[in-house]
C-alpha cells in the first residue's frame, strides 16, 4: 500500500462508468463505515476493528454481490436515513429493524431495489442492536492501514458517519439469486442469550468456586457496552490483585478486572491487556455478543462441555 493507494477514487455522480453517491440524511446514534478490518497488525499495536457482528455484515455484502470485505455501514440502534444518486440494490441485515423507502414499509429488507433519490430509513431494531446496510458496488471510504473500518478505540479509519456525510459507491455488481428466507444471521432474541467459550488463557488464576460462578451466573450486559467491549454485572469473581504484565488479547476475551465483574472484548478491543482472561468466546458467539444491548441476560457455557447448542 502506498500513500497514493489509500486515496479512494472519487467518481462524479453523472459519470458514465456508473459510480453513484450515498448521502446520509440522518446518522442515528452511532453509524460507522466498516469492512473486515486490519487483521495481522496487532504486533504493531493496531486493533483489528471491523463489524461487531461479522456474520450479519458479510451476509449483507454477499446478498448484493459484493466481496465480503467490501465497506458497508454499521448502524447501532437504528436511526439512519440515506439516499442514493442512482438506483441500486441494497441489503439490510443484522439486527432486524423497521425499514422504509419514502415512508413505505419494506417487507424483505435483505434485498431492496432502492430508486435514485428515494429515502431509505432504518428504525430501532426489534432485537439486537447492530444493523448493516450494504450497497451493490460497495462504499468508497478512505482506507487507513489497508482498511476502511472506523476503529472507535484508536480513531483509525474514516470519520464517524454524520448527517451530511457523502460516500462514493462503486459500479454495481451482479446480484446473486438467493432464496431470501435463508438470508438470516443469528441475533439474540427475548433479551437472553447463551454464549460458548474456551477456558483460558488465565483460568488457573481463579479458584474452582469462581470458575463455577462464571458458568452458573445469569450475567447482565451493563450500560458500559460498546464496540470495544461489554461489561457484565453479576456476583463479582474474586480475582484480587494479581501481578500479570500486559499480554496479547483476542476478540471475545473474558477479562476480569479487580472489580471482579467481567468485560468481554469486542471488535475494537486493545491488542494487549493487563487483567487476567478467564476464557474466550467462540468466534461465532462473539458475533452474538456484538448484538447485545444493556440489560440482556448472558449465560456462559464452556465450548468443550458438549452441551446443547442453542440457536437463538
Amino acid at each position: 500500500m502506498t500513500a497514493a493507494a489509500t486515496e479512494s477514487p472519487r467518481i462524479p455522480a453523472g459519470s458514465p462508468i456508473a459510480g453513484a453517491l450515498l448521502t446520509v440524511a440522518d446518522a442515528g446514534l452511532g453509524t460507522s463505515v466498516q469492512d473486515l478490518g486490519r487483521p495481522g497488525l496487532a504486533h504493531l499495536g493496531v486493533p483489528t476493528a471491523g463489524p461487531a457482528d461479522r456474520r450479519g455484515f458479510t451476509l449483507a455484502n454477499r446478498l448484493v454481490g459484493n466481496p465480503e470485505n467490501t465497506p458497508a455501514l454499521e448502524i447501532t440502534l437504528g436511526g439512519l436515513a440515506v439516499t442514493l444518486s442512482r438506483s441500486r440494490y441494497v441489503s439490510v441485515t443484522g439486527a432486524p429493524a423497521p425499514v422504509t423507502v419514502d415512508g413505505v414499509p419494506v417487507r424483505a429488507p435483505a434485498l431492496v431495489r432502492l430508486p435514485a433519490g428515494a429515502r431509505l430509513a432504518i428504525g430501532r431494531p426489534w432485537a439486537g442492536c447492530r444493523t448493516y446496510l450494504a450497497v451493490s458496488g460497495g462504499l468508497e471510504a478512505d482506507r487507513v492501514l489497508g482498511s476502511a473500518s472506523r476503529d472507535s478505540l484508536t480513531g483509525l479509519g474514516p470519520d464517524p458517519v454524520r448527517a451530511g456525510t457523502v460516500l462514493g459507491v462503486g459500479p454495481a455488481r451482479p446480484v446473486p439469486a438467493v432464496p431470501l428466507e435463508l438470508a438470516f444471521s443469528p441475533v439474540p432474541g427475548g433479551g437472553a442469550m447463551t454464549a460458548r467459550f474456551h477456558w483460558g488463557p488465565r483460568h488457573d488464576l481463579f479458584c474452582a468456586a469462581d470458575r463455577r460462578r462464571l458458568t452458573t451466573t445469569a450475567w447482565r450486559v451493563s450500560a458500559q457496552c460498546d464496540r470495544v467491549g461489554a461489561r457484565l454485572t453479576g456476583p463479582p469473581l474474586a480475582i484480587g490483585s494479581v501481578d500479570l504484565p500486559s499480554e496479547g488479547t483476542v476478540r471475545g476475551a473474558i477479562q476480569v478486572p479487580p472489580s471482579g465483574e467481567p468485560i468481554i472484548f469486542l471488535s475494537d478491543h486493545p491488542v494487549t491487556g493487563g487483567y487476567p482472561v478467564i476464557g474466550v468466546l467462540t468466534d461465532a458467539d462473539c458475533d452474538l455478543l456484538g448484538q447485545a444491548v444493556p440489560g440482556d441476560e448472558l449465560r456462559l457455557v464452556p465450548a468443550s462441555s458438549g452441551g446443547p447448542r442453542r440457536i437463538p
Partner: peptide
C-alpha cells in the same frame, strides 16, 4: 498465522 503478538512475558 494471522497474528504473532509478543508482550512482556508472552507471545500470542
Amino acid at each position: 498465522l494471522r497474528e504473532v503478538v509478543p508482550a512482556a512475558r508472552t507471545v500470542l
